[in-house]
């Protein structure tokens, strides 16, 4: 009996520990948001900061001696343009590879391919950035006749390469999770393999595939080093894929290290952090709602 009681206590202890782990994730997220916001909040009410300028002006002059201006519009546009193009490139390739891996290829080739794809994920972002700065830069100048090879296209291609492994591995898991009964039923009805994929597997694995894409988006929005090196880090509204841009993350990375702690510049960089946080939050919220909505109807 005594032993049983001891085991019961142990079980309760472990249960508590697990609950603590779950709660801590929430605590950390809110904690980080709180601290980031607190670092930047002072500027919001100081009168030296205008929300209209922040969202409406492209003039980002944080260290000007005559007139300091914090217009982040060009940075926001930069982040969006690179992310959207990266996803246009990465989603077809990522989902395509996931489908091939889970439905079409043999066991041995699958093992090799998975290792290679995972290797792609293991390359540090600074190495990607270096590739962008050197190889891709010259290549884009030569192929497209662009004046400079560090631009939206360069950054987006790197981000696409970086998010493909995530999309592939999560997408493949989602497809694998579709019960074999679905496949057998479809084949028994005389569906071709393509019909099986298009009509049965994709709708069935929809939620998992969406999660894969959104994690890829998250990777692209948050990526710093590669875009800092490959997009040209230039404040302007892009009018073509061959224009250099500057992203929100790259701005924080380039400037936070040397902005005096507590200065306006320092605080505005934390506000940029809050903006990034909010963007990610909205993307995730949308994902949750889409998934839930579809499930409700289905």
């Amino acid at each position: 009996m005594a032993r049983g009681r001891g085991e019961l206590a142990l079980e309760r202890g472990i249960e508590l520990l697990i609950r603590l782990c779950g709660v801590s994730a929430i605590l950390f997220v809110f904690g980080i948001f709180f601290f980031v916001f607190r670092e930047g909040a002072g500027l919001l009410w100081s009168g030296r900061f205008s929300i209209l300028e922040f969202f409406g002006s492209i003039e980002w002059y944080p260290t000007s001696q005559s007139r300091v201006r914090y217009g982040a519009l060009a940075l926001i546009t930069g982040t969006f343009s690179v992310t959207v193009l990266a996803m246009l490139l990465a989603v077809p390739f990522g989902i395509g590879t996931a489908i091939y891996l889970s439905e079409f290829c043999g066991a041995r080739r699958k093992e090799t391919l998975k290792i290679v794809v995972e290797l792609l994920a293991a390359i540090p972002s600074v190495v990607w950035g270096f590739i962008g700065l050197t190889i891709m830069n010259s290549l884009i100048i030569r192929l497209f006749g662009a004046p400079i090879g560090l631009n939206v296209l360069n950054g987006a291609m790197l981000l696409a390469l970086m998010s493909v492994p995530i999309i592939v591995s999560i997408g493949e898991d989602a497809l694998k999770a579709v019960p074999d009964g679905y496949r057998e039923a479809a084949l028994a009805l005389g569906a071709t393999r393509w019909q099986l994929v298009y009509r049965v597997l994709l709708p069935a694995a929809r939620n998992g595939l969406l999660a894969a894409v959104l994690l890829g988006v998250g990777r692209a929005v948050g990526e710093t080093m590669a875009v800092l090196m490959a997009t040209g880090h230039s404040i302007r509204m892009p009018t073509s894929l061959l224009d250099p841009v500057r992203t929100l993350t790259a701005t924080i990375a380039a400037e936070l290290g040397e902005a005096p702690v507590g200065s306006d510049h320092y605080q505005v960089l934390f506000l940029v952090g809050v903006l990034l946080f909010t963007i990610t939050f909205i993307v995730n919220m949308c994902a949750v709602r889409i998934v839930r909505g579809k499930r409700g109807r289905g």
């Binding site: 010259s138 100048i141 040209g232 380039a254």
Partner: peptide, 19 residues
């Protein structure tokens, strides 16, 4: 606005060598 703001003295020269 629209200058390419690089993060190191060496990067500047390397990029110009390719552009």
């Amino acid at each position: 606005l629209g200058t390419l703001d690089l993060h190191g003295s060496k990067d500047v020269v390397e990029l110009i060598g390719r552009t």
